[in-house]
Design a protein around this nucleic acid. Structure first.
Length: 968
RNA sequence: GCGGACAUGGCGUAAUCGGUAGCCGCGUCAGACUUAGGAUCUGGUUCCGAAAGGAGUGGGGGUUCGAGUCCCCCUGUCCGCACCA
């Protein structure tokens, strides 16, 4: 490539034209920017400010592929644009450095995760630097850095020391709750909790420290509890709900099972209401807001207590329903297999069967359960409940279609109006009773139905006092009656679960928690946070990254992992005596811990006294633009909002929401190439056009680097892998044509496009421009190297525009035509950046360049402002040309040019005509028609009298060639 | 099953307010300069048609003087959730 252009240069008549040597230019300016500290940011009082943030990457061993920088380029363009507009811009970058892959790699190779992480970070940095980003690297954070995770641990302690008061609508100190208990017990308390407790102040005062701690744990925002978790035995750890998809772990794709374990959790459900409500005001895409709404899954309904028929001392069942209006259609009840009442109510006759079913259901993996949703299973307990409104006796069944984690794990079944209850009733021959119909009184025999009527429309029928009411009214009436009778209440349920916060892994933040108690019995110990002044609690060294022989997490291997309470220090594990030296928590925090507040830390990253200073947070406020993938919609983007809201409640964060505007960049997919191996002759490869029947060949992924325009390089193919050494080919037109498919970009499909190669070949400016040119940032699109030539050609042409021969260089006065091009470009590019339409800006530059070239524009008055426009997109070239024009300072610190409206006159001609009316109409006219001719044509048209009602046109919009529009 | 987004030339796409559909680029065709071209430059390129002309934004209907854009129905693609009572 370079050789070719060098030869071309020698042939050129204008031999003083400098070559566009992008590699040299880019290297030089990247160094100059770094040395000059051009992108360093400080809080400047009074200046307008803007915080532009990318989701920080996990530095994986594979390095960056062309998909990663897409968002970084977009945000960099925006950040640079805002700077040129005079804003003080915070545009930092860092690394989400804790995580599973480094640890898995450590288990396999014995290589310490800190070492591989350091190596990967260095590689990422090198790749990022080559792309010319304007990050302020002085503010870099890494989640695995003790100076950083000190504050992750600190926030955890604050969560531990807080509870959520629903009356106040915010988090409050747990000390206030203790004081309240001592004064009034639980009277009048409305707080987020695991289990609703009722006790008096005297009871509270009578309890010992252990019991009190147990009670407080029920309210803490970070709490320890026995909960059903997603256990992944392959990874040896539990996972959060968003880390499990379809019963498999997101990382690695290993099976996940439900298991009851004692784990730390964050009471994120306390914030469910705020998390849903506050979405409304965010400048995010509707689809992402919808994803979060679905994930939080708010549903309004009623909790109703169903007593057991002849129940004795067995307490009532609490069920949750969104359809209280259908309570007259209840024909049975269903409990989840995990329900604690099953043992107490099952009759002797059914006991064996029920126990067998429960055991079977519990042993099924999540995956099996999800895969067999359609298969209905369940058993009868022999017990009956009473419908609290009708006193009707209904049988109680157990089935795994009722989930333990949602509501109370018990439902009232209304088979006529719920498809799952319907299927269950059909399977076990239970009665189905219609209580809703589309028309008043239009009842039919449910035995003839093929499906239930689930819609919340129509009228109540066969429903006692609500019969004849509309469904919506019936719902309200039934809830009112239920509350009146004291058999239930209005309530809201969320699909969102508390976030499980423990991971049985090594490479994560240690919990700043130790366990105190008289004995070594883990279940009797009480967790205490280590004093805040002692943070960070540093991750101890281990040599073995696997779980211990006794099944403890890897930290169980640590030689120094005990807390000396008196000396406030970490000491050797063998010193544990349960008097002054206690064991530390062995789990570590999950990946989302470190990423939940990093955007706040960037504001004040080197502060060792606080998470971030109030001065910094009051200055930057919140992230103005956040760019990253939509795949974080149910993970990071929920946790970060929760984290931020909590810090806001503490009076630390300046805003209730962390990310004002969010852009989701689309994934760049790979374009894979295939060769077709004959099934008869395993050494014969058939060109795509000659394959008659796909069943006779095996498609094999082939490295895209040995394919050009879908034509395979036969020699490189033979050298590629030993098994292809003696390959034979069936060629078409002397070429081997490969098949192709759009797939995820991944190593295993040999379709990864490395940005380094492209930077080497075309330069960073070309790559930046091309990634933007591919299409809208938000859209997923396949990588296609073909078009990059066009963008590169544009840059070469643009370069040439500034390389005029010396006789005219930079001195000519601007002509109107060139100024018009310039100002139209200013207008278009400014508007495009403001609405994040970077692909159209690139097109605009191309048009501008073509027009100025044909106008032979040499005026600095035009060429200089144009460089400022180009600077966000192709900063290296803009900088180089800026200096060639003899300008001082960096183009990155110049002023964005203002558009002069005078040059924006449209080709369309407006002819205002006096007339008062509203009607507009269209008429075809010859291109050269004048105003008079246009009006004459309008008046002459046969319908004109009808159109205008005898009046004259007000405004004629004349469009050349074809059409005029006339406003009357 | 529920929810969301999208559908425009051979390809990626553009059309910002309901007002000339197809900008810009790729590819391709023709030409120029060349010993040569995977360099550079010029011109053409939605489809049908020799042309005049006609058709045309997944399909069908509607609103409107006017629809790629708004409304309804259908089809297809992508994404999210998925026994959430």
């Amino acid at each position: 490539m370079q050789k070719a252009s060098a030869r071309c240069g020698a042939h050129n008549v204008l031999s003083m034209i400098k070559e566009y040597n992008f590699n040299e230019i880019e290297r030089r300016w990247q160094n100059a920017w770094r040395e000059g500290g051009v992108y360093r940011t400080e809080e400047v009082e009074g200046a307008r400010h803007c915080y532009v943030l990318d989701m920080f990457p996990y530095p994986s061993g594979a390095g960056l592929h062309v998909g990663h920088p897409l968002g970084y380029i977009a945000s960099d363009i925006y950040a640079r644009y805002k700077r040129l507009r005079g804003y003080n811009v915070l545009h930092p970058m860092g690394y989400d450095a804790y995580g599973l892959p480094a640890e898995q790699y450590a288990i396999q190779t014995g290589q310490h995760p800190a070492v591989t992480t350091e190596r990967n970070v260095a590689r990422y940095r090198e790749q990022l630097d080559k792309l010319g980003f304007s990050f302020d690297w002085d503010r870099e954070v890494r989640t695995c850095d003790p100076g950083y995770y000190k504050w992750t641990q600190w926030t955890f302690i604050q969560l531990f020391k807080s509870y959520y008061d629903n009356t106040a609508g915010k988090a409050l100190p747990i000390a206030a709750l203790e004081a309240r208990f001592a004064e009034r017990g639980t009277e009048g308390l409305d707080a987020a909790c695991t289990e609703v407790l009722t006790f008096t102040a005297d009871e509270w005062k009578g309890w010992n420290e252990g019991k009190r701690q147990e009670v407080l744990m029920n309210y803490r925002l970070a709490y320890l509890a026995d909960i059903a978790v997603n256990w992944c035995s392959e990874l040896g750890t539990v996972l959060a709900n968003d880390e499990v998809v379809g019963g498999l772990s997101v990382r690695g794709g290993y099976p996940v099972e439900r298991k009851l374990m004692r784990q730390w959790s964050l009471r994120i459900t306390a914030y469910a209401e705020r998390l849903v409500k506050d979405l409304e005001h965010l400048d995010w895409t509707d689809s992402l807001k919808e994803i979060q709404r679905n994930w939080i899954g708010r549903s309004e309904g009623a909790a109703v207590w169903f007593p057991l028929a002849d129940g004795g001392d067995v307490p009532d069942f609490e069920i949750f329903t969104t359809r209280p209006d259908t309570i007259f259609g209840v024909t049975f009840m269903v409990l989840c297999p995990e329900h604690e009442m099953i043992g107490k109510i099952t009759t002797a006759e059914h006991r064996a069967e029920v126990e067998e079913y429960v055991a079977w259901a519990k042993n099924r993996s999540e995956r099996e359960r999800q895969a067999e949703v359609k298969r209905v299973s369940g058993v009868f307990t022999g017990a009956y409940a009473l419908n609290p409104l009708t006193d009707e006796k209904v049988p109680i069944w157990v089935s795994d279609y009722v989930l333990a984690g949602y509501g109370t794990g018990a439902i009232m079944a209304v088979p006529a109006h719920d498809s799952r209850d319907f299927a269950f009733a059909r399977r076990f021959g239970l009665p189905i009773r219609q209580v809703v119909s589309l028309e008043k009184d239009a009842v039919s025999d449910p035995a003839t139905w093929t499906e239930s009527m689930d819609a919340k429309t129509g009228y109540a029928v066969n429903s006692g006092f609500v019969t004849g009411m509309k469904v919506k009214d019936a719902m309200k009436a039934v809830i009112d009656r239920i509350e009146e009778k004291g058999i239930g209440r209005r309530t809201v349920n969320y699909r969102l679960r508390d976030a499980i916060f423990s991971r049985q892994r090594y490479w994560g933040e240690p919990f700043p928690i130790y366990y105190k108690g008289e004995t070594a019995d883990a279940t009797r110990l009480t967790p205490y946070p280590i004093p805040e002044e002692c943070l960070p609690l540093e991750l101890p060294e281990v040599t073995d990254f696997k779980p211990t022989a006794s099944g403890e997490p890897p930290l169980g291997h640590a030689k120094r992992w005990a807390w000396d309470e008196a000396n406030r220090a970490v000491v050797a594990t063998e010193c544990i005596d349960y008097k002054t030296v206690f064991p530390l928590e062995l789990s570590t925090m999950p990946g989302f811990a470190g990423s939940s507040g990093y955007y706040l830390r960037y504001m004040d990253p080197r502060n060792n006294e606080e998470y971030f200073s109030q001065k910094a947070v009051q200055y930057w406020q919140q992230v103005d633009l956040y760019v990253g993938g939509a795949e974080h919609g149910t993970g990071h983007l929920i946790y970060a909002r929760f984290w931020n809201k909590f810090l806001y409640d503490l009076g630390l964060a300046a805003k209730d929401e962390p990310f004002r505007k969010l852009i989701n960049q689309g994934m760049i997919q790979g374009r894979s190439n295939f060769v077709y191996r004959s099934k008869q002759d395993s050494n014969l490869y058939i060109s795509k056009g000659l394959v008659k029947d796909m069943a006779e060949v095996t498609p094999i992924h082939v490295d895209i680097n040995i394919v050009e325009n879908d034509v395979l390089d036969l020699e490189l193919f033979k050298e590629w892998r030993p098994e292809f050494k003696d390959a034979r080919f069936e060629l078409e037109d002397g070429k081997y044509v490969c098949g192709w498919e759009i797939e995820k970009m991944s190593k295993s499909m040999y379709n990864v496009q490395n940005p380094d190669d492209l930077v080497e070949r075309y330069g960073a400016d070309t790559l930046r421009l091309y990634e933007m040119f591919l299409g809208p940032v938000e859209q997923a699109k396949p990588w296609d190297t073909g078009g990059i030539e066009g963008v590169h050609r544009f840059l070469k042409k643009f370069w040439k525009l500034y390389q005029g021969d010396e006789t005219v260089s930079g001195s000519e006065a601007p002509d109107d035509a060139s100024l018009k091009v310039l100002h139209q470009t200013i207008k278009k590019v400014t508007d495009d950046i403001e609405r994040f339409s970077f692909n159209t800006s690139v097109s605009t530059f191309m048009i501008c360049c073509n027009e100025l070239t044909s106008l032979k524009c040499r005026s600095t008055e035009v060429l200089k402002p144009l460089l400022v426009l180009l600077a966000p997109f192709a900063p290296h070239m803009a900088e180089e040309l800026w200096h060639e024009l003899g300008e001082e300072g960096s183009v990155c610190q110049a002023q964005w040019p203002e558009c002069n409206e005078r040059y924006l006159v449209e080709d369309t001609v407006n002819y205002p005509v006096q007339f008062n009316g509203k009607m507009r109409f269209t008429l075809a006219l010859p291109a050269a028609a004048t105003q008079e001719e246009a009006l004459a044509a309008v008046m002459a048209a046969p319908e004109s009298g009808k159109w205008m009602g005898g009046k004259e046109p007000r405004k004629v919009i004349f469009v050349p060639k074809k059409i005029i529009n006339i406003v009357c």
